[in-house]
Every structure is written in structure tokens, then in C-alpha cells.
Design a protein around this nucleic acid. Sequence first.
DNA 1: TATTGTTATACTCTATAACTATA
DNA 2: TATAGTTATAGAGTATAACAATA
Lengths: 166, 166
Amino acid sequence: MAVEPQQVRALIHGVFDLQRVLRCVAQEHKSSEVGSAEAGVLRMISEFGGRAVDIAEKLSVSAPVLSRHIAELHDRGLVTRRPDPEDRRAQLLELTETGKARLAEIEEARISLILELLEGWDEAEVESCAASIRRLTDTMRAKSHTLKGGSLDHTETTKEEELAAR
Amino acid sequence: MAVEPQQVRALIHGVFDLQRVLRCVAQEHKSSEVGSAEAGVLRMISEFGGRAVDIAEKLSVSAPVLSRHIAELHDRGLVTRRPDPEDRRAQLLELTETGKARLAEIEEARISLILELLEGWDEAEVESCAASIRRLTDTMRAKSHTLKGGSLDHTETTKEEELAAR
DNA sequence: TATTGTTATACTCTATAACTATA
DNA sequence: TATAGTTATAGAGTATAACAATA
């Protein structure tokens, strides 16, 4: 039950090491046209569409950052903006046909690259690795939201502790 | 044996999602004094010490980037540089006592943060997550080195394919 | 000639602050 | 007042190119 600090240390270093390798791989195979942040924008618009503010939230990015990426993608004809009929402040985002095609290219290139890099892995290994990473992400996202107010925000914990103490 | 493209796609998206959450967590808890890149430099000097070029290689960072970080850390009294007696072009890096103390603080803060975020995980889960991530990192690092020359460099693959074809 | 390290410059991605328009 | 989006500005992190000193 007790997680050792040294284990967590190893996990942290492992994550940093992963990020370094990812940076190198991205650097070596960067597509000249669409940056990785913009690719993320295309992906989120493709998956969820809709209002810019929601896309920014899914990307965990501030509004100005998304605004610039959208402007850039719009200028290059990859994204359309149209006013939200229900809220004239907002705009609804969609991929153009070109945008869809470009996203598909990016995803295919990435998949074939990683497939090549993972040569020798089997289905179960990929699945379990993806599941580990997803679980880590989900845990951190959930907990970091509840801790957002700082360590003084113990409202919920206190209730649970009261129950547990009986 | 056959890894499905859709599995790899899920893994890729999972890794990007992880990076977003990590960025947010780092943003929320950033230490005002030492940036995350500099913290990496401190860690590598602490673990391996020695020549700057070797530290740069371990960090997968170009020489100018490391040079600036080292200059910054040196100015703040966290790192010492002394000429390599065996090669007067090179310099040997070490942490000062202050540097060691600062690195220890950073690591402790990170560990206690992640320990808190991983509340509810048990030892085995942390271990298996760290192992998955380490294995992914190692595979990508090894393969990306062998693929460095581009997709035209099929020398080794060809030999294996010849054998496999028989 | 090749390597170690530095300086100059530029690129990518991000954030905060100040603003406009709408709710 | 609060929210959606934009623009201006700044900061962190990285890369390439050109250079100095040494091997």
C-alpha cells in the first residue's frame, strides 16, 4: 500500500527521460508545414469541434495561444470559423476538407513512424503501455484539479476522513 | 504479434495527453528559482558529472543550450567549472554544496507532489507504470538512433529481411 | 581537420495583461 | 459583471551558424 519515495523518484525521472526522447524524435521527423501544437489543435477540432473555448480547455492551453493557432490554421485554409448562432461572442470551429486531409497525413506519418520504432513489440505490450500512460494521465488530471486551490483546500478530504474515523 | 495502427494511434494520443497534463502540473507548481531545463542539468551533473559535452548528450540537448544553462547556474553559484587537466578544451562540471542542496529540494518537492497526486496507487502500480514508460523510452531511443540516417538506411533491415525470406 | 565550448540569432510554444464585443 | 475571443508583450526552451581555442 505504501508507495516508496524512491519509486516515485524513478517514475519522475522516467517521465522526464521519455519527454527528452520524444523531443528528439519529433525534432528528427518534424513535418515542415504543421507544428506539433497546431497538429494538436487540428486533432481536437476534428474530435470535438465546436467552440474555441472548449478546444482550449481540452488542449489545456490559454485562450490567446489557441486564438493564434486558429488564426494561423484559418489563414492556411485548414480550419473554418463561423459565428455561433446561439452566442454571438463565440465561434464554432471545423476542419476544412484540406484540414481533414492534412490531419490524416500527420496521423498516418506518426503512426507509421512509431510502428517502426516499436518493432519487436507485440499487441499486448503496446496495449499495456498505453493503458499505464492513460491511467497516469487521468490520475494526475483528476487530482491536480482537486488540489488546484492549494493544500489548504481540504474540504472534501475532511468529510471523508470524518467518515473513516468512525 | 501484429500491432494494430489504431493501437499505436491510441498510444500516441495518450502520450500527447500526458505531456499536456505534465505541462499543467509543472505550470501550477513551478519553482520560481530553477527552471525545469536547469533542474535537468543539475540532475545530470549530479548523477554523472564530468565534461559538458557528455552532459549535453545525456540531456539530448545541443551544446549552445547547455552552455547557456551552465553559465546561468554558474552565475548563481550552483555549478562549478574547472578545466579538464587532460584536455584543455573541455571543462569538468560539478555541483556546489548550494547546488546539491537546491537539487535535493527540487527533487523532494517533486516527489511529495507526485506522491500526493498518486494517492490511491499502490507500489505495484507505480512500479509497473514506471517500467512501461522506461521500456517505451528505451525502445524509442535505441531505434531512433539506428534510424537516424533516414528511411533510406536499410542496411541492417535488409540483412534481416533476407534471412526472414528464406 | 575535428572537437569543446561560447556567442549571436531565430524559432516554437506558452503565459499574462489589456482590449472589444456580447451575454 | 462575467465570458468569448483578439492583440501585444514577455518568457522559457530549443536549434543552427559562426567563432575561438585546443587536440
